[in-house]
Measured scan of single mutants.
Amino acid sequence: MSIQHFRVALIPFFAAFCLPVFAHPETLVKVKDAEDQLGARVGYIELDLNSGKILESFRPEERFPMMSTFKVLLCGAVLSRVDAGQEQLGRRIHYSQNDLVEYSPVTEKHLTDGMTVRELCSAAITMSDNTAANLLLTTIGGPKELTAFLHNMGDHVTRLDRWEPELNEAIPNDERDTTMPAAMATTLRKLLTGELLTLASRQQLIDWMEADKVAGPLLRSALPAGWFIADKSGAGERGSRGIIAALGPDGKPSRIVVIYTTGSQATMDERNRQIAEIGASLIKHW
């Protein structure tokens, strides 16, 4: 067993022997301040990774656009098919120029040779490549099948209805392509620590998230040296922004954090800054 596999296998073990965790309302004060600064709703939840206990939450059962955070769930569904012998990570998928959609920095470079399922998941999570996500959605049967996968996990809230990039439209009061912070946090925890996926697939999923290259201005910008984070960000229309993450000190994750916002007129930089400040408060009061 590799060191990384050992780390993920012992996530519940280490967490069980940690000192009790206590909620700190100071972080919620910052979440509410972010709402004021952005002029928009902000949803927040913080779960203990081992027990699933909610440590703090704000608007945990209000719907927010998922945006690209759905790509972690998508690759979880792909990995479940791999575990069941219905898919192979090494299978190569070929596609054409007509398949390319807006923001496809990886797939646009491989029109000639195609990409493997493993490479597509890596591109979808680490670079948020939209064509990679659409190609992977095709392998599982489309958005409705991802929703069905989530329902089978016990998540009857999260739903995907459309493809990239239309799913980022974020129309107010439109339930399409949305989740709730509580539902997303619980589902992410199941994917990373539950028995739904094999140990190898859980490790692969967290490795992809740990290698995320496009979430630097968010929670990662607030992390002290030595902290662990595996995350996936999302951005959408109407001032929408979000991030889902597993993080913790001492090089291992111990909490799940989900943050979503929508309806702001603020710039992307300002949305990023507010999420980073929430992260800084979380870490300060850990």
Rank of each mutant, 00 (worst) to 15 (best):
Asp161Gln: 06
Asp33Ile: 14
Asp129Met: 00
Ser240Pro: 02
Gly154Trp: 04
Trp163Glu: 11
Ile283Trp: 07
Glu195Arg: 12
Leu74Gly: 02
Asp174Ala: 05
Thr27Ser: 07
Asp231Phe: 03
Leu38Phe: 08
Leu89Val: 06
Glu102Ser: 11
Lys284Ala: 13
Lys109Ile: 11
Lys71Ile: 00
Gly154Arg: 07
Trp227His: 02
Glu87Met: 12
Cys121Gln: 02
Lys32Arg: 14
Gln265Ala: 14
Gly90Phe: 10
Ile283Asp: 01
Arg92Lys: 12
Gln204Phe: 07
Ile283Tyr: 15
Thr126Glu: 12
Phe14Thr: 11
Asp161His: 07
Ile54Pro: 15
Pro12Asn: 12
Asn152Pro: 04
Ala211Gly: 13
Gly279Val: 05
Ser281Glu: 14
Leu191Ala: 06
Asp231Gly: 04
Glu210Thr: 10
Tyr95Pro: 04
Gly226Val: 04
Ala9Thr: 15
Ala266Asn: 11
Ala182Leu: 15
Lys284Asp: 14
Glu195Thr: 12
Gly76Glu: 01
Glu62Asp: 10
Ala245Asp: 00
Asp174Val: 04
Leu135Cys: 06
Leu137Tyr: 09
Ala211Glu: 14
Leu199Thr: 11
Arg255Ala: 04
Glu119Cys: 04
Tyr44Gly: 02
Gln274Arg: 11
Leu120Ala: 06
Asn98Gln: 15
Ala148Trp: 09
Gln274Ile: 10
Ala170Pro: 08
Lys252Ser: 13
Phe22Met: 10
Met115Lys: 03
Thr131Glu: 03
Ser254Tyr: 10
Ala246Tyr: 12
Lys109Tyr: 15
Ala266Ile: 06
Thr262Val: 08
Pro181Thr: 05
Ser233Glu: 01
Lys32Gln: 15
Ala148Pro: 07
Gly242Met: 02
Ser68Ala: 00
Glu61Arg: 13
Gln203Ile: 11
Gly279Asn: 03
Gln97Ser: 14
Asp155Leu: 01
Thr107Leu: 08
His151Pro: 04
Asn168Cys: 06
Met67Asp: 11
Gly239Met: 02
Arg273Val: 10
Met184Ile: 14
Leu218Phe: 04
Pro181Cys: 08
Leu73Arg: 00
Met153Ser: 14
Leu135Asp: 01
Asp161Glu: 08
Asp113Phe: 07
Thr158Glu: 00
Ser233Gln: 01
Lys30Cys: 15
Met268Gly: 07
Ala34Arg: 02
Ala215Val: 04
Val214Leu: 07
Leu188Arg: 00
Met180Gln: 15
Ile206Ser: 12
Arg91Pro: 01
Ser264Asp: 04
Phe58Asn: 15
Thr69Leu: 02
Asp33Val: 14
Leu49Val: 13
Ala222Pro: 10
Arg220Leu: 03
Asp113Ser: 11
Ile256Phe: 05
Gly234Val: 00
Ala34Ile: 10
Ile3Glu: 06
Leu137Gly: 04
Lys144Thr: 13
Thr198Gln: 11
Ser2Tyr: 12
Pro65Arg: 02
Pro181Asn: 01
Ala200Gly: 14
Gly234Phe: 01
Pro217Gly: 09
Ala183Cys: 08
Cys18Trp: 12
Ala246Ser: 09
Cys18Tyr: 06
Gly226Asn: 12
Gly114Lys: 04
Ala276Val: 10
Leu47Phe: 06
Val21Asp: 05
Glu169Ile: 10
Asp161Ile: 04
Gln37Glu: 14
Ile256Asn: 01
Val258Ala: 09
Gly226Lys: 10
Phe149Tyr: 10
Arg189Pro: 02
Pro20Glu: 12
Gln265Arg: 13
Gln97Asn: 10
Ala200Trp: 07
Thr198Asp: 10
